[in-house]
Nucleic acid binder design. Structure first.
Length: 108
DNA sequence: CGTGTGACTCGGT
DNA sequence: GACCGAGCCACAC
């Protein structure tokens, strides 16, 4: 596990796990808050996951823009949903009517 | 230790 | 489709 995900400033273990998982999402694909929560055995902790990402101190390191809502909605983004949309678009993710194409969900 | 809050989700209206 | 309320979880106060 990459140490660079937890040094600098101390973050909660929970947040570290979230960042680590998020950093594994391949370019061009996306995952959901709920999916990350499930991988952390917190199947109902999607909101907690979102909170961890909001405080994401590794903005460029952790591709938090590849995390969207379960219904395909953009979700949120510390720098504005507009930036999030553009980033995804530049990675090849289709965004239609403010919704992510559910067919490119990362299945891991 | 109790409360409030939020980049969530689901089901009902 | 939009709005609302309830349930869940980590975290700041």
């Amino acid at each position: 596990m990459p140490m660079s995900i937890n040094n600098r400033h101390k973050v909660s273990d929970f947040a570290s796990r979230v960042y680590e998982l998020t950093s594994k999402v391949p370019k061009g694909k996306v995952t959901t808050y709920g999916r990350l929560a499930a991988l952390l055995d917190l199947k109902k902790g999607a909101q907690a996951v979102g909170q961890a990402l909001h405080c994401n101190p590794f903005a460029p390191t952790v591709p938090c823009h590849r995390v969207v809502r379960s219904d395909g909605d953009i979700g949120g983004f510390a720098f504005g949903t507009d930036s999030k949309k553009k980033l995804l678009k530049s990675e090849g993710v289709e965004i239609i009517n403010n919704k992510i194409d559910l067919s490119i969900y990362c299945v891991k």
